[in-house]
Design a protein around this nucleic acid. Structure first.
Lengths: 213, 213
DNA sequence: ACCTGAACACCGTTCAAGT
DNA sequence: ACCTGAACACCGTTCAAGT
């Protein structure tokens, strides 16, 4: 049994992650600062740097934890299109309540290690549907971009709704010149109502259909 | 001619915007702080608050300026699908070099006032293609989500490429269990190459086709 | 009316020192 | 080996005072 030398640890990476989870779930991602996490585990912010490389590292670890807990339901469709839709819908359902995740991994159009079941299922569905590996990867990435964009937009819209100044969009729509922008002018105030609709599924089905055609 | 009273202004909103443009174009959006803008126009940060409400307001004004300068080329296609693709491609081309814009207006799936030509053209194409107003708005919003997601992802990927630690994704791909994730394991290192491809057009065409079907 | 200085309440991170 | 305190170099914004 190897001898550990030096001062015994007061805190652990697990304790840090648990605290981070608590904070982000109850107070949102903006409340997640190094100082706040430190307070929660009962140390100074600087002690954290002994257990995680930096804040980005913390976020990534947090993400991987979430990913592990999200189920990918067994497919119920027989056809490839249906299976792709199911997997993408599950992926979106997992992310929608935690939109900050999208911001963390935006770049990696691949999800965290323990969430790879989602791309796997989607790529598999497309390959079963007759696409070769290249086209299936393209299809997955296209769906990822669509999903990430939709989640970000919805999250921002929700944020704005709690804001006072939802006036901007109304303001944009008053006094549109029908000669210049006939379609938008005709829509008028209906935009507000139409833009609130959840169109994810509609877009997803169009996308999958178009990609498999 | 109305008599203006009080101290004459040293700076103007135009001067502030011009400075902000200079900063964001040469040093990127992260360099755009109130203090930095103030230094550029030769005042203190607090003087700015007399001309813009807050930083968000400044960003929105900046955005509107950009929007005014971006051309929407005349359509060349006869068919509605082609015109929708053209307008969306122009919109993406306008945004791609300035991905921070997407972050500013994420919520408003409608663009800034002076950029309304883009949604107008896209909605018009879909309505010409036989969709009713509701479906055309849905179609536009779906395309917007896809476009915003793609731009964000590409911007983040570029940022990461200049980073040192592009190791994370490689790391994820080493030692995948082929029993658990057969498709991804088979892809192996090819992911890196495949994920670099520009798939915007492919996805856009699939989407437009699926939406008009 | 417009501008200034000082201040508030924060950030992430580094670094030298302590146990 | 692990933790601490002080410090660095920032943020956006408020507020009272000056011109």
């Amino acid at each position: 049994m190897p001898t550990r030398t030096g001062r015994p640890p007061k805190i652990s990476r697990d304790a840090i992650l648990a605290a981070a989870h608590r904070i982000v779930d109850t107070e949102g991602p903006d409340a997640l600062t190094m100082r706040r996490v430190a307070r929660e585990v009962g140390t100074t912010a600087m002690a954290l740097y002994h257990h995680v490389r930096d804040k980005d590292d913390l976020l990534r670890l947090l993400l991987d934890d979430y990913a592990a807990g999200v189920p990918l339901p067994d497919p119920v469709s027989d056809d490839p299109a249906g299976r792709a839709v199911e997997a993408a819908t599950a992926m979106r359902a997992a992310l929608a309540p935690r939109p900050w995740i999208v911001d963390v991994l935006r770049a990696d159009d691949l999800l965290a290690r323990r969430a790879l079941r989602f791309p796997e299922a989607i790529i598999d569905a497309f390959m079963t549907g007759g696409l070769d590996a290249e086209d299936a990867v393209d299809a997955y990435r296209i769906i990822w971009h669509y999903t990430a964009g939709e989640i970000s937009a919805r999250a921002a819209a929700t944020r704005r709704r709690t804001d006072d100044r939802l006036t901007y969009r109304e303001q944009v729509f008053t006094g549109l010149d029908p000669a210049e922008l006939p379609r938008l002018a005709a829509l008028g105030e209906r935009w507000e109502e139409l833009a609130g609709r959840d169109t994810y599924d509609k877009g997803l089905r169009a996308l999958v259909h178009g990609l498999l055609r």
